[in-house]
Design a protein around this nucleic acid. Structure first.
Lengths: 217, 217
DNA sequence: AAAGCTATTCTTGTATACAAAACGTTGACT
DNA sequence: AGTCAACGTTTTGTATACAAGAATAGCTTT
């Protein structure tokens, strides 16, 4: 919306993602205002924008508190992401165009070229394109928007997952399987494959949760 | 968040829903401020809150514009609602408690008592509870929250649908089928039944869209 | 007379000043 | 000494004042 509030919201979002702000921390308006060299007004607008993404919780007359998702939250979010992508795949299987299939194959090819180089950043970029094409080809603009929103929100937590040994190659195989199912127009197969592909990324947090609850006993 | 901004956001939301503000209309800040007897500040905060629900589009240095969803948008949203509820049902089939099954049966019983009386409001209230229990029993708090958000957003468009002849009785039957599937722990059956139950509500807008495109040719 | 440019005005974006509520601290009372 | 209450401080919520960009209208020019 506004120039400065927009910029500030982006900056704050980045700092929440990279852990500069820890969970539960209260963000002081005047302090942030001084830090950005602006008044409290654009700070407050930025904070409101961030509640929208769920990164911040705004409690009346108490202030803005950083809301870092815990393992349980992340597990839930990955589960929903997996289901939403599965829906996209199922719908796309019937609605996808030949041109889009070609673009999917392209993104996949560029993806696989990154694997031997160990180019995680490059892989991640092309991977995002691959998924975005499937969202779009669902033919449902609302679904597409929701998927992009959640994908973006989970981004920082998914990157770590990609660095695990052998995960890149495995993911490539899953991409190929999804593409093949879409080519065949087999919606259920595409959905199941993509659901599993995404659900795997949540496993890390399931393990983290399991070890934590075990330690608490 | 804030007392007045919160109230104002609710009021504006109501006016958008009931059609007081038409699609594309620009909302003047000073005019609204005068109308509510407050300054521009809480008005601006309320408007920001409404962008979050997608009811308003905020364009930089141009103002706030009402975004009434068209038939295409509604069709997409109902499709996503159907899929999300299907996911809830599938997950709930494995995770639901006996107590929750009893509450579902209760809500259903209260629902069916409203049908012969033609009590649409009562039906709608109990119907919302029925669906909310299924969201909750998915065991996924994030999914539950997303479902509640979308359900709430679609509320004004669903009510009209309920007034169609025979729809209430038909919907009751679908509720019973979902409950039965959940009792059996048959996730796929519960998902398919609930998906269809919700998808029917989007049909009205598909017809509206079809007649509109036909008229344009 | 029409088109383009400029100036004025209207509206949004930001800063500051003020009000009210919540928190912490200190003091009095039991 | 402990607890509760009142006061002061800090911080959020709201109002108003100011700045900057966008729309519009009027003027000039061709």
């Amino acid at each position: 919306m506004e120039r400065r509030a927009d910029f500030i919201a982006d900056q704050l979002e980045r700092r929440i993602f990279d852990g500069t702000f820890s969970d539960g921390e209260r963000l002081d308006e005047v302090q942030l205002a001084a830090q950005f060299g602006v008044s409290r007004t654009p700070i407050r607008e930025a904070l409101q924008r961030l509640t929208q993404s769920g990164l911040i919780e705004l409690i009346a007359r108490r202030g803005a508190f950083v809301r870092q998702p815990g393992p349980v939250d992340l597990l839930d979010m990955f589960e929903v992401m997996a289901e939403l992508e599965a829906v996209c795949a199922r719908l796309a299987a019937e609605r996808i165009t030949d041109a889009a299939l070609a673009r999917l194959a392209d993104a996949n090819a560029r993806c696989s070229r990154c694997v031997p180089k160990g180019d995680v950043d490059g892989y991640y970029r092309e991977n995002a394109i691959f998924h975005a094409i499937i969202y779009q080809q669902s033919g449902n603009a609302f679904l597409e928007a929701e998927c992009l929103k959640l994908h973006r929100r989970l981004q920082p937590f998914r990157r770590n997952q990609l660095r695990l040994r052998g995960r890149l190659a495995q993911a490539m195989g899953e991409h190929e399987a999804v593409l093949a199912a879409l080519r065949e127009g087999d919606g259920e197969k595409a959905a199941a494959t993509l659901r599993q592909h995404v659900a795997v990324q949540g496993e890390k947090f399931r393990i983290m949760l399991a070890s934590r609850t075990a330690a608490a006993e």
